[in-house]
Design a protein around this nucleic acid. Structure first.
Lengths: 197, 197
DNA sequence: GTTCATACTGATACCTGGTGCCAATCCGAT
DNA sequence: ATCGGATTGGCACCAGGTATCAGTATGAAC
């Protein structure tokens, strides 16, 4: 019946909920061997909301992006954006982006950052990647922050095709470079051999 | 006090909840000018779960992906794999892969499928994308199943560089084509201007 | 020892957003 | 007039809590 120190229990509680937000107080009771009242006091002290509030928050986070601006559809955080001119985004390489054996980021994540920035920088209703020519200069590693800079080389508003060049850096080292051709709606009817983004 | 036909109300109800899943029955009461019991009968007939279930589902969808989206290996399901020769994978375009406005898949998902297949087909400890030249032939849309076929054109075991060509189809229409250059460890020490995957 | 603080537990009332069920209407068509 | 679907009302009940008050345990301080 030995009691675990309160601090330790708090840590456990926080960890349990963090990696399973769907736990009810009753289930936590079983896991931590304390009364439900204690669980609730603990949540109170740790400012952890009740199950329903947690789920609601998660739902909101996953819902917001759907209706809000295409900025949310960008991989990475937009740091600067001048439509039809240039843009900068930051993307931190996390566990889920790397090969576990080597800690090296999988290429499509680095590509995704560059691609979505290239699309975001185009000032149009619909913009789709038509083609791209890309080079991975050196590997990006776990924990590194990738700064992608996109420059619109030719906005092609009337032609319906824009050219965007993207460079991605970690510190002052370039890790990726890509030339993107982006289809833009630009009042024109629709695709026709058009691509995606 | 004129009553709206039931069918029409059902449509409205479905639409209202679709674009604001956070509505309680009480709020719907106000919006549709019927009693709360009617709202509940309607939800029953339309098989729309209660608020809390809706939020829970949303939370689950946004939670699961966190651990399963960063697919541990390959984006898409491997259907066939002959190392250093060829490979086939299938990837279904879901909600989370498309632009909400157009229902068109974001390019980096299609790229991710092709890229990870190109890497998987290389029979080596470590394989990283060095460069790629890609074209999005036509948009891939929500619900479509993309079949990617990768062919190793030159395995370059001694040179440390393999060339892989990938074609992605929906049905018999080609949606994507890419030429990948993959660095392979091939006993050699490590990268050096090498890329990622 | 007694006292005191902190931690924990129990019990109760109350809240939201529902489900499930039954009975009472309303309203139009036959 | 009466039948039937649509609608509404009422009540019991549920999960998963909040809020509050009271009781118990335990260890340290005096």
């Amino acid at each position: 019946m030995e009691r675990m120190p309160k601090k330790q229990r708090h840590q456990q509680l926080a960890r349990l909920i963090e990696d399973n937000p769907f736990l009810t107080d009753r289930e936590l009771t079983r896991l931590l061997k304390v009364s439900i009242q204690t669980i609730r006091l603990d949540r109170l002290e740790l400012a952890i909301p009740e199950l329903r509030e947690r789920l609601k928050l998660m739902a909101e986070r996953s819902y917001d992006p759907v209706r809000s601006l295409p900025l949310h559809e960008v991989i990475g955080d937009i740091l600067d954006l001048q439509l039809d001119k240039s843009g900068i985004s930051m993307f931190e390489i996390r566990d889920e982006h790397v090969f576990s054996r080597s800690g090296i980021a999988r290429g499509h994540h680095v590509f995704a950052q560059a691609n979505s920035l290239a699309v975001a920088v185009i000032n149009d209703e619909i913009a789709l990647t038509a083609s791209a020519d890309i080079r991975f200069i050196r590997p990006a590693r776990l924990g590194e922050k990738c700064i992608a800079k996109a420059y619109v080389r030719s906005s092609g508003v009337q032609k319906g095709k824009a050219k965007v060049e993207v460079f991605t850096y970690v510190g002052d080292e370039m890790v990726f470079q890509g030339n993107f051709v982006i289809y833009r709606s630009a009042g024109s009817a629709d695709e026709e051999g058009a691509g995606e983004a």
